[in-house]
Amino acid sequence: MSVSGSNSRALPWALVTPALAWTLLFFVLPFIAMGFSSLTAHEGGGFTSANYSQFFIDPSYWRAMVNSLEVTAIVTVISILLAYPFAWILAEMVPERWQRLALMLAVLPFWTSYVVRSYSWLLVLAQNGVINRALTGIGVIGEPLQLANTRLATVTGFVHFFVMLLTLTIFANLKQLSPSYRKAAADLGAGPVRTFLHVVLPLTLPGIMVGAFLTFVLCIGDYITPQILGGNNELVMPQLVMMQIGRRGDFPLASALSIILMAVVTIAYLACARWLKIERA
């Protein structure tokens, strides 16, 4: 029942209008501006759909989108596969009183600057970085491996971040499960493996889907990690967008590419909406 003692009609609108106005002015309006911009020609202005058709015609643009999707898919799958058992160990095997500390430690590097985090991986993966020096030192390899400026480096940087994020969300999910579910399953004769497969996993699946979606959205829109770790050998969409602004000041093309990127995320959202809704219910 949302009946209030106040009879004033103006008050509620006075409360919500500033936030709505801000959203309209600095989120919706920029979006419209971007839409208009994407339909104008960079040279000489005028209405055109060339910015969009360029994306579909030029295979190097296509390639960037395919790279983005591939990297994002790989990162999402690897991160979940690494984070789930880790979160499970933290939630089930670490004694209760140490759990908070264990979790805080597990996400500590979260709080390094996001630019610095990618840079740190560069230190590790560089030609004469920690890994190459260690491997050549013990004689496993003769020549340093090309680790930086590869897709492997981009994926490593991303996975590092998302393992922390997903550990947090999956841990929270596992802790929310009432222990009586597991007791009930055990009571009804299910062993630990079957309890996990038939009870724990299905109940945490909605949370995993939300985490996966979050990973997808954050990963596909990120510029820093691929730029620092992947370099320019293999461009992804955000790099392509930034390149249009940085090198050529081509706002219309950058706008068109941004809108295409957003369209892809929206399609992914609609595809996942079914699972994301389960969580909300």
């Binding site: 959203t23 600095f26 989120f27 309006l29 920029p30 979006f31 501006a33 971007m34 911009s37 959205v217 954050l218 596909i220 829109g221 990120d222 510029y223 955000p238 967008v241 930034m242 602004i245 706002f251 950058a254 706008s255 941004s258 990127l261 957003m262 995320v265 959202y269």
Partner: peptide
Amino acid sequence: LPLTVSYLIIGMGLLVL
């Protein structure tokens, strides 16, 4: 809604505006 949109795109939009 802005929670579901990449920072890059929000930044682009503001830049264009």
